[in-house]
Design a protein around this nucleic acid. Structure first.
Length: 651
RNA sequence: GCUAGCGUAGCUCAAUCGGCAGAGCAGCUGAUUUGUAAUCAGCAGGUUGUGGGUUCAAGUCCCUCCGCUAGCUCCA
């Protein structure tokens, strides 16, 4: 006898083995039709899966209204896609087919190279399968039995996974839909007919089991929704996002460029982009001074010997610009990071505990030879400037300093209105051998970090094992770009390694008159100016707040008759410290306004005969429109206040 | 680096089966002197990413290299 307890407290009893679909049917035929899955003791199961023969289970029926139901639908759609591909092409080996943030993919190994030209054909076959509306069916199997089963089907990737990838798991589950069957944990929607709308999006390569040394599979991406309007809205959103891509806006707004003749991944900051960066540098510099940092400037190249001591040189050899060898045999490396140089500043004289914490800051330019396929606009480049600093402190000061770094990063992000980010604690993967330093140091560092972060109110704080730097654990501020890719911006990293005996052997004399070892903190609130500004362009869709706008005001004359007064206004704005330009073309005022609107200039000062007579300007706000005429002095005061407050206007 | 796709004027894009490289915007010149999102006319702009091949003929087909895009791998 099985007792099924429903969420509303009612219960049903069964003396035969039942499935969720049976229970839904007993409650009502309409519910049976709408039920996609069931939740039993926190686990989702399929509608056709058998419940236990006896005992008591709490059961919740899942319909399309459940937010997680979309995942279920997409995973089922992935199976439908794989089925269509297998129907259309020969020799298809199945790999994995999970859901991702906005859709799903399936990996295949097959002779035919898939391309977008194949999409209509595959989509048509998928539509046929959806129309056929066959049920998904769960099959349980002993693992060895499954090895034979997939072996008979010539699915060698599945056999390999069953033999090597599943540990000592004894039984596995398969899902079958018509002639298609795959190893799958499930659950699935009851039948394919539930899939209301789907679309294939792209095809790309992916390594078997994410290992670059193994064979490459073809990964087919798609997405699915319960209804067509939802799909269309999603596709529309993707189009909108493309419009705010920093690479597109960077060109349109003349912010930056990359010239392949100079080198891939090497960014030119054009005058307008440089203006934005300059404002950000000023802002950060002020914060550094306020928070007790001491700015330094250090060389952008250094003797290879230095990086051998730090351990970077042999370790990251492949992703560095190769060293320059001089006639005397000395070798110099374009620096891939600033830390060793700041360490040399620390070492330039004996240090006392009274010097600590020593906070050395530098907008330091570094170069790394990233693989060509990893380059991306401003977000992944080969030369970039970090808003870097290194804090040398005592063991006792670590928690407080680390906290200070996190607070500064939060302050910076808040000032810019960047509130959508998550904080990732990158810890060591104990199974890997890529880390240096004693297990004891790692344990201490990770504990300290977790404690400090836990005390603060950090958004979406989560731990990821294996995400640590090779020398210590870190806290990364991760922001998603307009098409959903995640980028690490700010970072705070703890380092017990570089100060150690094996590396630079840093010391300070304590109040007990004996030498002690300092701890190092690496931190960069922006990460790099390149990546940060790339994200900011997308965040603001190119419409920077007044204090950052490359061009803050455009003066425009209604007629060239008042050009003289216009130029006087422009001069006064320049003298008041604003970035300003003037439009004295023989165009209609409507055309000038349109051009300024498209250039996303925050303020337009319109000047005609009336203003010229009264020493006024007609102020137009890019977002709010015409604000009417006011004395020039009042307009300047208004702008000053807005710049000082670093106001971020909601669109 | 790997897999796939793409590369035409400064930008966005055309060019049917391999048959005279073209438009809009931007630029320049002239006219127009304008009141809150596009005044009109004209001019100029190209070794179709590079190098090679096939062909009577290549933007179009094939190969090489370079670059870009998506994903994978990587990210001190």
């Amino acid at each position: 006898m099985l007792k099924v307890i429903l969420p509303d407290g009612k219960s049903l009893e069964y003396s035969r083995r039942v499935r969720p679909i049976d229970i839904a049917a007993d409650i009502g035929p309409r519910l049976a039709k709408a039920t996609l899955a069931a939740e039993v003791e926190g686990q989702w199961i399929g509608v056709h899966d058998l419940l236990p023969a006896e005992g008591e289970v709490a059961l919740r029926l899942i319909t399309a209204k459940d937010p997680k139901a979309l995942d279920l639908l997409r995973h089922s759609c992935a199976h439908v896609m794989a089925r269509a591909v297998m129907r259309l092409f020969d020799g298809v080996q199945l790999a994995f087919g999970p859901t991702v943030a906005d859709g799903f993919y399936y990996d295949f190994q097959m002779e035919h190279a898939l391309s977008e030209a194949d999409f209509p054909k595959i989509e048509a076959e998928m539509a046929r399968i959806v129309k056929e509306d066959e049920a998904f069916e769960r099959v349980e199997m002993d693992r060895l039995e499954a090895v034979k089963f997939f072996g008979d089907l010539n699915q060698s990737l599945k056999v390999e996974h069953l033999q090597e990838g599943l540990g000592d798991q004894a039984a596995v589950s398969l899902y079958r839909q018509g002639e298609f069957v795959d190893l799958c944990r499930g659950p699935h929607v009851p039948s394919a007919g539930v899939i209301g709308a789907f679309k294939l999006l792209s095809v790309a390569g992916a390594y078997w089991r994410g290992d670059a040394s193994r064979q490459q599979l073809q990964r087919l991406y798609g997405t699915a929704f319960f209804t067509k309007p939802e799909l269309e809205e999603h596709l529309h959103k993707i189009e909108e996002a493309k419009r705010r891509d920093h690479r597109v806006l960077g060109r349109q707004l003349d912010l930056f460029m990359i010239d392949p003749d100079v080198g891939s991944g090497l960014v030119f900051w054009l005058p307008k982009g440089a203006a934005v960066r300059h404002e950000l540098e000023n802002f950060l510099y002020g914060e550094l001074i306020r928070r007790g940092y001491q700015p330094v400037n250090t060389p952008v190249i250094g003797n290879v010997h230095l990086y051998e001591i730090s351990g970077h040189f042999p370790y990251y050899k492949d992703s560095q610009f190769p060293p320059i060898e001089m006639a005397d045999g000395e070798r110099y490396l374009l620096r891939p990071m600033n830390c060793p140089h700041h360490i040399m500043v620390y070492k330039s004289r004996p240090r006392s505990y009274r010097d600590l914490p020593l906070r050395l800051a530098e907008f330091g330019t570094v170069h790394r030879f990233e693989q060509s396929g990893e380059l991306n606009g401003m977000t992944r480049v080969r030369g970039f400037t970090q808003d870097d600093a290194h804090i040398f402190c005592t063991e006792d000061q670590v928690a407080g300093e680390f906290r200070g770094c996190l607070e500064m990063t939060q302050f910076v992000l808040k000032t810019l209105g960047l509130n959508e980010y998550s904080v990732r604690l990158g810890f060591r993967d104990p199974a890997s051998d890529k880390y240096v330093g004693s297990a004891e140091n790692w344990r201490r560092a990770e504990e300290a970090l977790e404690r400090v972060c836990g005390e603060m109110n950090l958004p979406n704080l989560h731990i990821e094992r294996g995400e640590a730097a090779f020398y210590g654990p870190k806290a990364d501020f991760v922001v998603a770009d307009c098409i959903g890719r995640e980028w690490q911006l700010g970072t705070v990293q703890l380092d017990y390694n570089l100060p150690s005996e094996q590396r630079f052997g840093l010391e300070y004399i304590g109040d007990d008159n004996t030498p002690h070892r300092p701890v190092m903190i690496h931190r960069a609130p922006f990460g790099s100016f390149e990546r940060f500004v790339g994200m900011l362009i997308e965040h603001f869709a190119g419409a920077f707040p007044l204090w950052l706008a490359p061009e803050q005001v455009r003066v425009m004359v209604v007629s060239q008759k008042v050009e003289e007064y216009g130029r006087a206004v422009e001069r006064q704005l320049t003298e008041a410290g604003f970035r300003v330009s003037g439009d004295y073309r023989a165009e209609k005022i409507g055309a000038k306004i349109r051009d300024a609107q498209l250039a996303l200039i925050p303020y337009m000062f319109v000047i005609g005969g009336r203003e010229a007579e009264n020493d006024q300007v007609a102020v137009r706000d890019r977002v709010e429109g015409d604000l009417g005429a006011m004395p020039l002095a009042a307009a300047i005061e208004r702008l000053r206040a807005e710049v000082a407050a670093k106001t971020v206007k909601k669109k």
